[in-house]
Amino acid sequence: MIMSLLKKEVLDSIRDKRSVMAALLGAVVGPIMFVGMFSFQIEKSRSQETMYVEFENQQQAPQLLELFDREDILHAPKPETGKTIEIDGEDETHSGITVRFAEDFAERLAAAKPAEVFVIADHSEQDANSNIRRIKSVLNSYQGSVVSMRLMARGISPNVGAVLKVTDRDTSTPTSKSGMILGMIAVMILVSVFVSSTNVSIDTSAGERERNSLELLLMQPVSTFDVVAAKTLNAAFYSMAGATLSILLSLVLFPFVPLHKVGLAFNFDLVLAAQIWLILIPLAVFAASFQLATAFHAKSFKEAQSYIQYTIIIPVFVPMVVQITEYKHVILGWIPVVSQQQAISQLVKGELNEYLPVVMGFVITLLASLALTLFTARSLRSEKVVLGL
């Protein structure tokens, strides 16, 4: 009976072009945005843009200005309004920062006394802190050079001030360095699982109730469990379809992310894609059963839409809470969503050595899905739920 109902549900949902397009769109947008965002950030981090700063009392520190010039930090008067300035006939953006050398800067520097430099900026602006760090990096470099020359002029080796020689040896691999990026891949794929089944779950529950077809279906000689199980498998099919499309799109697009330019590496191949796909199967069933339970207990179609939108944040919120609380327990790796997120993260990093959490997460996620299906089936025996009262 479940197979007959499933066939009916699949045919009904396929006729709804909106559900099909929503499932595809939810799976496509994530990888495209992810790849585009990281490619842009990598290129931006490698390219050092010219920064325009207003230098006051420039005659006090000509050598220092040469260092700023080498680092593409150039002088330009601060505009009276806004930040747009004209350089060689082209519009440029001023940093809004003023570097002021004290009136006695050169005199105190020659006398081996601390010479004062003022960095004047609005720290509330978005790029202010990064620009200030660039300026201070040049100042610190100049200060270190001057200190070394003063010591050598007095016959003292600059190494006298070096009490410790700390050598930092990085044992990480290019893949392990990509930890944050690879962790976000796992979250992106998990989100596609929940997004892809959203419209189907709403339409097959609250939507059928408003079209008065749910009541007619339940009047047939079928159990409520069979009805809910068929609807769950149908919604899970869309979850897996979206997840499959997201994985395949990632497989195609990720080679174009220039990770090698920042010393990172990530090999997204067919074997990895197939392993991720298998891990997502129970999660697709869980997402469908959870969303159906939520939608059936909403009193209207619009209310169901409002409730289910919050289920999309589950694959982001739950792992984030576990990470923030820093609570460590083996059982945490078995619960739905967290189990899949950790398994995929370890898999893409090449660090998946224990398969017990994966197996337990697989089983417990399916059991949780069954429990939600039984709960929804039992709820449909009540007229309040069926009629949305």
Results as ranks from 00 to 15, higher is better:
2 I>A: 06
5 L>Y: 01
6 L>F: 13
9 E>T: 01
10 V>Q: 04
11 L>T: 15
17 K>I: 15
24 L>W: 05
28 V>Q: 03
29 V>F: 10
31 P>C: 11
37 M>G: 10
45 S>W: 03
48 Q>M: 05
51 M>T: 14
56 E>C: 08
60 Q>I: 05
62 P>Y: 08
65 L>W: 06
77 P>S: 06
82 G>R: 06
94 H>C: 07
97 I>Q: 05
105 F>Q: 05
110 A>I: 14
113 K>V: 15
113 K>I: 15
116 E>M: 12
125 E>C: 01
125 E>W: 05
130 S>A: 12
132 I>Y: 00
133 R>M: 15
142 Y>V: 12
146 V>L: 15
153 A>R: 15
158 P>S: 14
167 T>W: 05
173 T>E: 04
182 L>P: 09
193 V>E: 02
195 V>A: 11
207 G>L: 09
215 E>L: 06
229 A>T: 11
231 K>N: 00
238 Y>Q: 04
258 P>V: 01
260 H>D: 14
270 L>Y: 08
275 Q>W: 10
276 I>D: 04
278 L>F: 13
289 S>W: 11
297 H>D: 09
316 V>W: 06
320 M>H: 08
324 I>F: 14
342 Q>V: 03
344 I>Q: 04
344 I>N: 03
348 V>I: 12
350 G>N: 03
355 Y>G: 00
358 V>F: 02
364 I>G: 02
365 T>I: 07
369 S>K: 09
369 S>I: 14
380 L>M: 12
